[in-house]
Design a protein around this nucleic acid. Sequence first.
DNA 1: TGCCAGGCCCTCTTTAGGGCCTT
Length: 215
Amino acid sequence: MQSVLHPSSPGGRPARPAPSEYTLIFFDLETTGLDVSGCDIVQLSAVCGERTFNAYMVPRRSMGYSASFVTGFTVEGDSLLQYGRPMMTVPLQDALADFLTFLRGFHSPVLVAHNVLRFDAPILLRSLRGFSLQNELERVIPGFLDTLLLSKDLPACSRVRKFSLQYLVKYFLGKPFEAHDALEDSKALEQLCHVWNPSPMLIRRHLYTVQQIHF
DNA sequence: TGCCAGGCCCTCTTTAGGGCCTT
């Protein structure tokens, strides 16, 4: 699904001086743990319709026990394994540069993830800053859309009491879901948003610029 | 060996505490 939003003011002029439409890019990270200020990315994935991005990296620090348990990632020597299978990895800097190139292929790409405000965005921005690439992301994307916050504002979720991605996928898509693979999670989130079909007003309400992310 | 996040939100709250959400 390539989602496009056309924001406009009551007067018919664009609500923001910048882009007149957004493309929703669903993305996800798998990391060495939940420590936002210190964990490393091991998988960076994104999807928009038929176009996907997927990169694996060997982390500088060890995988946390619980992170390994839920994602299946382990590190042996200089290799990243997923469920014991060696993965093709690239240096973090290359993955981030390639990700920016991927994003440049869309018009006004908005990065969408579940709990992106508190987890994915701060980690992504911290990683980019390490290679002086943070400003480049600011130039490429209008902002981030957090589906955790969005879901709590959706009429379709008025009876929902749990808002984890796992629960929402099971509730709305009717299938068990325990992926914890960044690409699969991104695809599931895209399907979820396709079902929700949130209004442009709701999307704008939960859109945050890079400058608004605390990390 | 022992450690293993943090901020928001809700309520049986506010002089607090527990659950949620991400890996």
